[in-house]
Amino acid sequence: MLNAKLSRKRRRYIGFMRALMYVCAALTYALVLFLIAYVLAKGVPNISWELLSTSPSYLTERIGILPDILNTVYIVIATLLIVLPLGVGAAIYLTEYAKNKKVVAVIEYAAETLSGIPSIIYGLVGMLFFCQFLGMQTSLLAGALTLVIMNLPTIMRTTQESLKTVPQSYREGAFGLGAGKWRVIRTVVLPGCVDGVITGCILSVGRILGESAALLFTAGFAHALNGIFEGLTSAGATLTVALYVYAKEQGEFGAAFAIAAILMGLTLLINLAATLTQRYFRRKKA
């Protein structure tokens, strides 16, 4: 007769391991939920129209984060405007033009390393190079340029990955009709990798929103209300930096948590946007 019963020891072992995994999963969920709930509970009551629509005043002790919101928008725009052509161009060169496989491998490896460097190091280098050596002072532009270096690998890698998914047969078809290299890239290859570029952009925006260390050094802490051009050449805090300033230097935890809640909402939106774009393009390709 087949003895199909598990031994008691074995059953106890399985039960124990399963319980352990449940605990791990539950802890993870609980931590995330707690964090979100805590930030929302502390932050949302402090979000008011006045907070969102005014700039801070020391005279009336008013706290407003409009300048910080605008600074964030400016720095996102400036960074993307510079990093997109650079990253996409580099990706096109590496996948479509570069003949020397060794050089390509070295550059790819360097980009990978670059994306793993702690951001405070970018801040330090950015401060010394952009702010001091190039004489930009502490300004949003210096911050944006620092973020360009930080995000270049992301944009480059996502574009490259997506360029590699464009079937070789499209290129052959276009070359076979007598199209030149640039025409093939512009008309057949690039349209096929728009999704990669957009994904890279969204990831970069997320990273820019979340960046504080690199900007503390390069973009400064000012809360002045400026237009985009004026804003780029003067110092300014983004939302994340403002959070740090309010919490650490002014003890305004209400405002800090309000900003935190806003940033969390934005992150959620960005992740959602990334998922939706990917789904949209996948459906379009199929």
Binding site: S169, Y170, E172, G173, F175, G176, L177, G178, V188
Partner: peptide, 14 residues
């Protein structure tokens, strides 16, 4: 390549 055109093994419309 304009004068000598090509049709590939696997259909490859753009």
């Amino acid at each position: 390549r304009r004068q000598i055109g090509m049709v590939f093994q696997k259909p490859n419309p753009f």
